[in-house]
């Protein structure tokens, strides 16, 4: 067994130090490391156990209490004996490239708990909101853990970014913040699979916000009653409602699995993510040269079909061009 195979075995065995190393590898942009990370992802995928985990993408405006909610989610999921991987994405400074990570509410976990893994990542400024390596990191995490939570600072574009890597998109809303109107205007309510009104401890303000949200959702999903996403009230401080949130997310995933949509969704997502990466490198012009987005995506789909990762497919296409 070579070094990478051994690393994969250890990742699958949920050895957190190995998971840490695997993510550092997929973050590494050096050409040789890229080859290795491509092979690592391939090995994970062909292990037959990859992508077993359920990936939640948690997003929402600053101050909505996302980090406390992630902390509560991890706590409750661990109580249900689920293994948990968390990927928290923070913005990079455009000027220095530096970033301050973990300076929010810390994800409180027992350092002896080997089945709770927390990683922070800087957005790197490549793509709106999510680091280039986030997609690959999620593949590593979903191979190792049953529940994976990706948290992003949701501002502008990035609110839609997280959907490229997660099975279930959860949008966190702060009551009485005026967020709602913004979301409706920006068409963001189309994206989440589950909505959360956090800070239940605010009382009537929170329940009113939930009611308004439900009304707005009904309006944005006319005639599609069944597809209106659920709204859950939570208090991250007391963990109230967090069990229900986990249930709703699990239901969403079960629905996807039942209709056979899960695999198709994941494939489509990987294609879109690969397209984002490709466009990031090749620019709008590069896309044009291939005959537009549809053509580019079709070629990426072929490359993905050969077992490449999103990153691998995008770079292969960039080279072919």
């Amino acid at each position: 067994m070579d070094e990478l195979q051994e690393l994969v075995e250890r990742v699958l065995a949920r050895d957190f130090a190995a998971v840490g190393r695997a993510i550092s590898l997929v973050e590494d942009r050096r050409p040789r490391a890229s080859e290795r990370s491509e092979r690592l992802l391939q090995l994970l995928r062909t292990s037959g156990r990859a992508a077993a985990g359920h990936c939640l993408g948690l997003t929402g405006p600053p101050g909505a209490g996302k980090s406390t909610l992630v902390s509560a989610l991890a706590r409750v999921a661990r109580r249900r004996a689920l293994s948990v991987g968390v990927l928290a994405v923070d913005p990079s400074s455009p000027r220095s490239g530096g970033a301050l990570l973990g300076d929010r509410v810390r994800i409180e976990g027992d350092p002896d708990d080997e089945l709770l893994y927390v990683r922070s990542m800087a957005s790197g400024g490549d793509l709106g909101g999510l680091a280039r390596a986030a997609g690959a990191a999620v593949e590593v995490l979903t191979a190792a853990y049953e529940l994976v939570v990706v948290e992003t600072v949701g501002v502008g574009q990035s609110e839609t970014d997280v959907e490229h890597v997660s099975d279930t998109v959860v949008l966190v809303v702060q009551p009485a913040s005026g967020d709602l109107l913004q979301f409706i205007k920006a068409g963001i309510l189309e994206i989440p699979d589950v909505l959360v009104v956090n800070k239940l401890d605010l009382g009537p303000v929170a329940t009113r916000a939930a009611a308004e949200l439900r009304a707005a959702l009904a309006a944005t999903h006319p005639g599609r009653q069944a597809s209106v996403p659920p709204v859950v009230l939570t208090s991250a401080a007391t963990s109230d409602g967090v069990d229900e949130l986990l249930d709703r997310c699990a239901e969403h995933r079960a629905q996807l699995a039942a209709t056979g949509a899960l695999e198709a969704e994941r494939a489509a997502r990987r294609r879109r993510w690969a397209y984002r990466l490709f466009r990031d490198w090749a620019g709008a012009r590069g896309v044009q040269q291939l005959g537009g987005r549809a053509h580019a995506e079709a070629r990426l789909a072929l490359l993905l079909g050969e077992g490449r990762s999103a990153w691998g497919a995008a770079s292969a296409l960039a080279e072919q061009r």
Binding site: S96, G97, G98, A99, L101, G102, D103, R106
Partner: peptide
């Protein structure tokens, strides 16, 4: 951070 490190500081 301002020099360009990614800094993990949890207080």
């Amino acid at each position: 951070r301002d020099a360009g490190f990614e800094v993990v500081y949890e207080g």
